[in-house]
């Protein structure tokens, strides 16, 4: 790969939708960049924001959270709660000048394999344009 910047991306994907969409994309042989490191969680609402900080501090250039479409949460309202948490997280990143554009929240249902592949492509290109994140470079965090 040489000197070309390859973004390191971490994804927290809901078991019931986005993770299944990733499966569907795979079994349908859709192509998307290998930059994403998917982590399957039971619900987007179960992602403690501490783990998003952890991802950034450990060198992730971007973090994406994937959940069920509003109204479709397997646990009724987990995704709505996730949305508030992500909003708070994004606000803090903005206030502290930590490049909030590196955090995405997307709703991708189990049937949307194509949307999953496209979103991963988009996110990879988006972060590639932003360049490497500085957050994970500091060894004194």
């Amino acid at each position: 790969m040489g000197d070309k910047f390859e973004p390191k991306l971490v994804g927290f994907f809901c078991n019931w939708c986005t993770s299944s969409a990733a499966d569907l994309a795979g079994t349908s042989r859709m192509q998307y960049p290998p930059n994403i490191r998917p982590i399957r969680v039971m619900c987007s609402g179960s992602v403690d924001t501490a783990y998003i900080w952890r991802a950034f501090l450990e060198g992730a250039d971007g973090v994406i959270i994937g959940g069920c479409h509003p109204g479709d949460c397997h646990y009724v309202s987990g995704n709505y709660k996730a949305r508030r948490r992500i909003k708070i997280f994004e606000t803090i990143m903005k206030t502290l000048g930590l490049d909030e554009k590196r955090l995405w929240l997307r709703w991708i249902s189990a049937s949307e394999g194509k949307k999953f592949a496209e979103t991963m492509k988009e996110f990879t290109e988006h972060i590639r344009k932003l360049g490497p994140s500085k957050i994970g470079k500091n060894w004194s965090v």
Binding site: T49, A50, W53, L57, I92, W139, V141
Partner: peptide, 18 residues
């Protein structure tokens, strides 16, 4: 390198989100 104790910034950022 890792500064020791580690996770001090992580602690403050995380507590803020909580």
């Amino acid at each position: 390198a890792v500064k020791l104790p580690t996770d001090t910034i992580f602690f403050h950022l995380g507590r803020l989100t909580h």
